[in-house]
Amino acid sequence: MREPSWVKVTRAVVLTALALFTLIPIYVMLTSGLKPLRDVQGPFRWIPSHLTVEPFVDMWHTVPLGRYFVNSVIVSSSAMACSVVVAIFAAYAVSRYRFLGRRVFSITVLSTQMFPGILFLLPLFLIYVNINKYTGLQLYATRTGLVVTYLTFSLPFSIWMLVGYFDSIPRGLDESAQVDGAGPLRTLIQVILPTALPGVVAVAVYAFMTAWGEVLFASVMTNDSTRTLAVGLQSYSTYEDVYWNQVMAASLVVSVPVVAGFLALQRHFVAGLTAGAVK
């Protein structure tokens, strides 16, 4: 199939424009972290006047970035681990069993995704405060509270995507495992999960990204000691002079884990969407 030349030219022009649009902010982030302070306080320049790694050293002292980082790592990985486990079981039940309330469950879970976050924020805040008052269980302003909240945020999409994945695995596989005497749990873990691994990985990445990037609840549900990067990164700008080179250095460092993870696994993501969403 030959393409006419106008298609090739249009493609080159349009894709270049989109690539520039996409890359300029990333370029600014990458280079500004390597600039000395006077470069970011004066007029913008594309090339740093000289390269320095000082921002990458100083950023840890200007704000307690290390603590925010640790908090984010703990919260996001716990939320990811729990979310994946919960979603696997729920998705397996929805995919393999016909039970009363199956449709209600699927529809309710999916529709919670469309609700505005702000609608849950105030009540959840009150509920956590009151759970503490009546049971002593501290959820407000703790990492546990954030983990519970975030893991639920990623559940609907994770369940939905995994149901699609599980549905595409032939039931014969389950049945032959059961003929060999495996119960539902062993069937799921030893037979289904290995086959659905790309989907599970994609869901895990999604859950981690959701928790790592969430801003609204992080800004209300944390205090000084539990603050995550989402809020912590903004504390650079409370100073009279914003050290933009440090802000850019910090932005780069907090982006690396998720961007690397996502781009490395993007194939599985597209495959997962194809299996789950785009049927």
Binding site: P25, V28, M209, A230, S251, V254, V259, G261, F262
Partner: peptide, 13 residues
């Protein structure tokens, strides 16, 4: 790449 960037890092840039 922009989709993978955390919202706050991208928007602060």
């Amino acid at each position: 790449a922009p989709y993978a960037l955390p919202a706050y890092a991208a928007v602060i840039t």
